[in-house]
Design a protein around this nucleic acid. Structure first.
Lengths: 100, 100
DNA sequence: CGTAAGGTTCGAGAATCATCGAACTATCGG
DNA sequence: CCGATAGTTCGATGATTCTCGAACCTTACG
């Protein structure tokens, strides 16, 4: 599967990594936007719209490697989804409090 | 009041700063220990017991400046307290989920 | 095919953060 | 007063992290 990026298993997700990923205003804004449902990366404008795409990609990488979001190929786009089920199972109440 | 360190007001506490402060394993361990009640700094051994005191003091500084703990002089010691009331008021459910 | 759209990866420089020894401050006990 | 105790602050070094351009990789579309 070319284009597939590595994602941690649910059991591999570390609370400290999640907290770190969410500790940046831009990444937190992205996460909040994804709480309303999956989104194409191109449609995700939680931040400065003329943010360089490499920077935006890096934000997504941090969130993905922490286990906060999934980033899966979808045609020539990327589908971003919040891993709410995994995070709710591992850290009940965390997302609810942070996304408020 | 010599020895008094600056603490943010409740209204100044930023969620991202709190998340960052808690995103380190040592700082998270300290926070969890303080969830059981205030503690003298000398009695707080959440971490490596032969951790240099300057490093330990730095951890406390990050937690204090984020608004997670209070650090107040108490004789020649320091009394550490979790700011549970402020954090619960600002971010309901956050501490409960993180301290679990 | 060729080309463009949508993103990732790489590499470099800047900025931030961690770690710890050494010096300093303040307080209590004798 | 003196020394010991408890901790902060300073300064330096090393490690992460951020930012962004440039190059690269796929997929869709004509």
């Amino acid at each position: 599967m070319p284009g597939d990026l590595p994602h941690p298993e649910r059991s591999e997700i570390q609370l400290t990594d999640v907290l770190f990923a969410l500790s940046d205003p831009e990444r937190l804004a992205i996460t909040r936007q994804l709480a309303d449902g999956p989104l194409d990366m191109a449609a995700c404008h939680a931040t400065d719209p003329n943010l360089p795409k490499s920077t935006k990609s890096h934000f997504m990488k941090v969130l993905r490697e922490a286990g906060v979001i999934r980033n899966e190929p979808n045609g020539r786009r990327r589908m971003l989804t919040l891993r709410r089920d995994d995070l709710d199972a591992l850290f009940p109440g965390l997302l609810d409090s942070v996304l408020r």
